[in-house]
Simulated assay, not measured.
Amino acid sequence: MVMAKRLPYRESLVSQIHRGSFSQGSWIGEMQQASDKSVIISEILDPRTKNLLSMSKISDYVLSNELVSMALAMVAEDRQINDVLEELFAEEGNEMHIRQADLYLHETEELSFFEVLLRARQRREVVIGYRLANAEKAVINPPAKSEKRRWSLEDVFLVIAEKE
């Protein structure tokens, strides 16, 4: 059961079971607490369902048919993109990661995005964007790559790297 793995006090519940002090009420409470912290991501096949989800404020879903259509459109436009997509979506090979800023810089440094790219390259990684600590959205392929900035250790970088 997936929810059982997410229980915050699973180890303490196991020890309570062995002592015989486990009650039905505490089990239900723990499941509700785990449910509040769980994220369920649905696969949507019909694009019309996307409109229903937007009305219900659900944002965690994958529209798999749309992803396939977009990939086919990219390959139709430029056949060389197929090699990139194959590398990213194959079971082996590189994949996208979110990395903490402290892998590439120190708190007091002022670096441009290009300099961060060079440091990531030494780790055999390719930085494609970043998300600042106080921002909600990531910046992919930033326009001002040579502009120096003071990064925070709370910032994260989006990288393409080998599987860990």
Rank of each mutant, 00 (worst) to 15 (best):
E30P: 01
A101S: 05
S23A: 15
E91R: 14
R124I: 03
A144H: 13
R48H: 11
K50E: 08
T49R: 04
V126D: 03
A101K: 00
E107C: 06
V116K: 00
T108P: 07
S23V: 13
A34T: 01
S35M: 12
K37E: 09
R19S: 14
L158T: 03
T49K: 07
Y130F: 11
K137E: 07
G25E: 14
P47Y: 03
S38L: 11
K137Q: 09
S38G: 11
I140T: 03
E162W: 05
K163E: 08
A4S: 13
E87A: 09
L52P: 00
L72T: 09
A101G: 05
D78G: 01
L63P: 00
I98V: 14
F89S: 04
A144S: 11
A144C: 04
Q33G: 08
N51C: 06
E110A: 15
V39D: 05
R6I: 03
V156P: 00
A101E: 01
V159L: 01
E147P: 02
D60S: 14
N94L: 12
S69E: 09
E87R: 11
S59Q: 13
N51V: 09
S146V: 06
A90S: 15
I40C: 02
M70S: 11
V2A: 15
A138G: 00
D60A: 12
R131I: 04
E87H: 06
D83Q: 10
E162C: 05
A71K: 00
E43H: 04
V75A: 03
V14N: 08
A161R: 05
E77D: 09
M74E: 09
A144R: 12
L67F: 13
D46N: 15
M70T: 13
F114C: 14
G129I: 00
W27N: 02
L153R: 08
L153A: 10
V139S: 00
E136A: 06
R150Y: 06
S23K: 15
W151D: 00
L105E: 05
A76Y: 05
S35W: 09
L7N: 00
R48F: 07
I140V: 10
S38K: 05
E164S: 14
G20A: 08
E162S: 12
L117G: 02
E66H: 14
V14D: 10
K57N: 08
Q24V: 15
M74N: 09
F89N: 04
R6Y: 09
D36R: 15
F89V: 06
P142C: 02
R119L: 05
D60H: 10
E30Q: 14
I28V: 13
M1W: 10
I41R: 03
V2W: 06
E147Y: 07
I17H: 10
K148W: 01
L52Q: 07
R119D: 01
Q32F: 08
D36A: 12
V139W: 00
N94G: 04
N65Q: 13
E147L: 14
E95K: 11
R131S: 03
